[in-house]
Write a protein that binds this DNA or RNA. Sequence first.
DNA 1: GCTATGACCTAAT
DNA 2: AATTAGGCCATAG
Length: 107
Amino acid sequence: MKPQKTDSFYDKIYAAVQQIPPGCVATYGQIAALAGNGGAARAVGNALHKNPLPGVIPCHRVVNAKGRLAPHFAFGGTGRQRSLLEAEGVEVRGEYVDLGRFQWRSQ
DNA sequence: GCTATGACCTAAT
DNA sequence: AATTAGGCCATAG
């Protein structure tokens, strides 16, 4: 049997994003993998775009495979994100983040 | 079940 | 560097 206590994949995605520790960032593919579907990066992006739980989901910790922030953000823009990430200790270069140093990984 | 959408990924032009 | 094209997946109507 499967310990499935959620209904939609989106719900897992939101949970995965909330699991991201401060000072770290995760890629869409990583969130998709945590949600149980590696490769569903697109679904992850859609889930966050809908952002049903603003203020609860730290979307600013989610970046794409290149460590780049989204072109648009439900928070007000990438500039807004840059401030939040830097505030947590993440070095942001324009719209890019150093994945080799701040990408969230199992410790 | 099909169509349309999307904050993705990669390659090609 | 920017745009286009194809591929991948899930959701909503």
